[in-house]
Design a protein around this nucleic acid. Structure first.
Length: 114
DNA sequence: AGTTTGACTGGAG
DNA sequence: CCTCCAGCCAAAC
């Protein structure tokens, strides 16, 4: 995976956002992944926060399964309680502490299209 | 141009 | 397991 040590140019930021959305739409039903993983797969390992921003503010994100993205601990997005409901409807199980059971539902990407 | 803000993460307490 | 803190970095102030 490519990694640019320098800061993003506006063009790279655009590509990053596009890649993020493209990755999110590939998360299988009943699975979840994390901000950090998506950032890494998009080629910018240290940009997990930007993944969250992209999903929250990108207009097209609502038509994607962005509810299948949680943080590394399996915690759902703050201020979006419905996310848990959406996941449970897909069969995602939660632990007693309210976090997604990552050991069962974490989706690892297939490099180069499976 | 400097400061604050997070849909984050990892480590410490 | 939880909260707090430092590092993170594009965006919004």
């Amino acid at each position: 995976m490519r990694y640019y040590p320098d800061k993003m140019t506006p063009e790279q930021a655009r590509t990053f956002g596009k890649d993020v959305l493209n990755i999110v739409c590939q998360i299988p039903r009943g699975k979840v992944t994390t901000y950090g993983h998506i950032a890494a797969w998009a080629g910018w390992p240290s940009h997990s926060r930007m993944v969250g921003r992209t999903l929250r503010y990108s207009p097209g994100a609502e038509s994607l399964p962005c509810h299948r993205v949680v943080n590394i601990a399996g915690r759902t997005a703050p201020g979006w309680s419905r996310q848990r409901t959406l996941l449970e409807e897909e069969g995602v199980t939660f632990k007693p502490n309210g976090h997604v059971d990552m050991s069962k539902h974490l989706w690892e990407p297939e490099i180069n299209g499976v």
